[in-house]
Design a protein around this nucleic acid. Structure first.
Lengths: 126, 126
DNA sequence: CTTGACCTTGACGTTGACGTCAACATCTAC
DNA sequence: GTAGATGTTGACGTCAACGTCAAGGTCAAG
């Protein structure tokens, strides 16, 4: 299949596909006319990248997963490097959540000071 | 005082102070040699901006607070426009927290699938 | 033959809040 | 007088992941 179909099936833009190639995440064969040619394995790679990016992974984070799939594993997450990224990401997310909870408390406190009673309108997100 | 002292007292860079001026958040008088000259009121403005930015506000968000102080109010948050920003920010933060909690659950689920037992090492951030 | 859908590379634009450098002026202290 | 700290404006660099042109080549259908 060509880049348009690949992109449609994976739910990304053709620009994104070319960008992934530029970043070394995927590769491409070329047909006689110079068009990029892809197969099912490429589709799995792009789908993996997309699903990871959707939940907040960077392309750098996605690399171990892609390499894991390329190495022939069933899923991108079944290699130790991928598991390490999973664990690191969980830590980062936990830290972000903690920071946001702190910020929320800070902002709510400032609001309460500036306008007593205003705080009652929003509930605690926990 | 000049820009260096102002920046030191407020805990920002001189570059940041000039940027705030460029964005119209603060103004400056000039002494004979062309140096920017500031007073205590300017320090309060920059301090207000810094404290807001620290908890995640943009400079655009900070503007009502600065104008509130300029209008002679004791605190930057005691004007209705500032309170509106507070409330909007609280909503945004709540939404970010919800999104992060969703992401965390998603990542934890993927990790659990890729490596059963690995999930036990991190605790729930709630 | 020509429209139109698809492809190519290359390169600038987006977003916010500055960092960093250039090239120069000013002032203080010794 | 000179070194060093400080000030000035101007302007490009940073970060991520593409979006969005520009200017063209390729190919099937009518």
């Amino acid at each position: 299949m060509r880049i348009g179909e690949l992109a449609r099936l994976a739910g990304v833009s053709t620009r994104a596909v070319r960008y992934y190639e530029q970043q070394g995440l995927i590769s491409s064969r070329r047909s006689a006319n110079g068009y990029r040619e892809y197969d099912e394995a490429d589709l799995r790679l792009v789908t993996e990248i997309r699903s990871l990016v959707t939940v907040g992974f960077t392309l750098r984070d996605a690399r171990p997963f892609v390499e894991c799939l390329r190495a022939g594993h069933e899923t991108g997450g079944s290699c130790p490097e991928s598991v390490a990224v999973y664990r690191r990401k969980l830590g980062e997310i936990d830290e972000q959540i903690r920071a946001l909870l702190d910020r929320r408390a800070e902002v709510a406190a400032q609001l309460a000071e500036a306008c007593p009673g205003c705080t009652l309108t929003r509930e605690d997100p926990r």
